Each structure stands twice: as structure tokens, then as C-alpha cells.
Amino acid sequence: MKPHKVTAAAAAAAFVLSLAAAGCGSEDAADTSSGDEKITIGIKYDQPGVGLKTPDGKYTGFDVDVATYVAKELGHEPGDIEWKEAKSADRETLLQRGDVDFIAASYSITPEREQKVDFAGPYLLAHQDVLIRADDDTIKKPADLNDKKLCSVTGSTSAQNVKDEIAPKAQLQEYGGYSECLTGLENKVIDALTTDDSILAGYAAQSEFKGKFKLGGFKLSNENYGIGVQQGSDLKAQINTALEKMVEDGSWDAAVEKNFGPANYKNEPAPKIGVIVD
């Protein structure tokens, strides 16, 4: 793993963009400096432990806790937050249109996405991994996935990555959602579920699944979760300051333990702001 820092050229480009945005910003863009007490934050609604809207209308998960902390540092109480669902395919559009102030939604920082939006953070280093049954002792290393029934959601690249790169003989099963994969895993219809370890830990930590599953701990990829903002937004620097404070005062560790602890998730230490692990 090779961490790299944001270059001086990139920082200069961001400064130029911020000047341009200040001069000709979109009238529709969300603006937390306008005196409006409300702040709109994009999260996932369907990832337990990460970002979840519960049946009673509450919002829970690590991303929710991080976003709530950041919002408070920006001057907004929890009651000021308007949560908005940010599905993976919609995240860049939501930011570019100004529908949200920022997005914290298991949002991996990639060069392609950085062409469209800016990222604060990273605030979590996750890895692609597999979830298996707690009593399964046949899958101890990635190669053991060969000839196993491997599940992920339809359209996901995670399972295909394993099949292409790690275990070409794995039997790929694509379901409509992770909950279906979990049911199949529990009923021994499939042998393993793959996606980011943070998402897997969130599912495994749910009370109905406690003790039933375990993570493989394979670290098949590096996923640097960042908080997305509009390109050129000065919110990026403010959010970075908030994230640094969250780590320093222990709130980051507390949020990890609260949301992932029951799954025995062996998280990486809090990443350094502006350092992406390749």
C-alpha cells in the first residue's frame, strides 16, 4: 500500500476552482453560509452499521455519526439536519446540482470521481472482503473461494473482481440486494458474500445476525471513504478540520466501536487527512 499526498499542483488547481466558484456559483447550490440553519446531507439508507433509515424514521450508522459530528462543527445541531438518500449512481449528480451540502455514503475516493466532485478526508480506510458463516473453516484465504458460491448484488464489481483476479473458479451468484445474500449465506445456499468490509461488518453487527457470521479479513482492495462536496467548495477545508477534531477527541473510535464492534471488525487506524492509500 502506497499512501500519496495531495500535490501542490492539485491544491493550486482547487484554489483556482474555488475562486471561479465564488465568482459564478450556481444559484441552486446549497450554501451553509447563507444564514439558513438547515443543512442537507446525503447518506445511504440501506446499509446497516454504515447508513440506514430505520422503519421508525431514524438514521443510524457510522457515516451518520460522522456526518452528525461534522455538521455540529459547522454550526448545525442534529435537528438542523435534513437527510437525503444518496444512492451510489446519484451521488455526483446530487452534489453538482446542489441538492445536498455534502455526502457521507461509503463514498470511495477515486480519480474518476475527483474529476466531478471534491472530497474531504478520507475518514475511513475500508477493504473489499468476504463474509462467511461463523462455523465455516473451509475458507481461510482468498484462493479458498474457488468452487465456492460467491454472492454480491447485481451490477456490483466486488464479486466480479474476486472471480477475475482472486478465485476464477468461484461460482458467482448475483442477488438483488445484500439482505438476500445474507439470507442465502445463513441458509447455506451460498458460501460467501463480498463487498466492503465496513458494510459487511455493519450487517454482521445487527442483533439478528450476532454470532452467525465472520469476516474473512482478506483486504482484497483499499477503499478510502471520503466526504463529497461540490468542486471548489470551501466546505472541504472546514470538514477536514472537523474530521481531525473527531479523531483527536476520541469520537471517531467511539463511532467505530458503536457501529462495527459487535462484528469484531478489525478496522484500520483513522487515516490521515489528504492521504490516499492506493
Rank of each mutant, 00 (worst) to 15 (best):
N240H: 04
K169T: 09
A167C: 05
Y265K: 11
F209E: 00
L145A: 08
K72L: 09
G75L: 06
A22E: 11
G25A: 14
Q231I: 07
G211P: 02
T32I: 15
G250Q: 13
D99T: 14
A167N: 04
K236H: 06
S106R: 01
C151H: 10
H127I: 12
V229H: 08
I103P: 07
K38Y: 01
K58M: 12
A86E: 10
E186C: 00
K2C: 05
N161Q: 09
Q171W: 00
G61L: 14
Y69P: 07
G42F: 10
Y59N: 12
A242P: 06
L17M: 08
A71K: 01
G42P: 10
V247D: 10
E223Y: 09
E257V: 14
M246G: 03
S179W: 04
A254C: 06
E92F: 06
V189Y: 07
A71I: 02
E27W: 03
G35W: 06
A104C: 15
D90R: 14
L125P: 01
D164Q: 10
W83A: 06
I239A: 08
E248N: 11
I103K: 04
Q206T: 09
E77N: 06
P271E: 11
E27Q: 11
E186H: 03
D28F: 09
S158W: 05
I139E: 01
A9C: 01
G98P: 13
Q160C: 00
K169P: 03
D144V: 13
A22K: 13
S34R: 05
D137T: 14
W83L: 08
T54Q: 13
S152P: 00
Q206G: 02
Y123V: 08
E73Q: 15
K38Q: 12
Q173H: 06
G202V: 14
K141P: 00
K210R: 15
P55A: 13
K87E: 12
L200F: 06
T183W: 00
N224Q: 10
K149G: 02
D31W: 01
A67G: 11
Q171S: 03
Q115E: 14
Y265G: 03
G274K: 06
D118C: 12
S88R: 11
V100F: 10
R91Q: 15
K258T: 11
S221P: 03
F209Q: 02
G51W: 08
R113S: 13
A192P: 07
K266N: 12
A13E: 14
A12F: 13
I190G: 10
T40F: 02
K169Y: 05
S251E: 13
P262N: 08
A10L: 05
S198C: 07
S18A: 15
E77V: 02
I199N: 05
I43Y: 01
H127C: 07
Y45I: 02
V275D: 06
E244K: 15
A270L: 05
I199P: 00
Q115S: 11
G226E: 07
L220W: 01
Q47C: 03
K116F: 11
N224W: 13
E82A: 09
P48Y: 01
V70S: 05
Y265T: 03
G155F: 14
H4P: 00
V117H: 09
G98N: 12
Q206Y: 00
L185F: 07
D278I: 07
A159I: 11
A104L: 13
I103C: 09
V189W: 09
Y107R: 00
D46V: 10
D36M: 04
A263F: 04
K210Y: 07
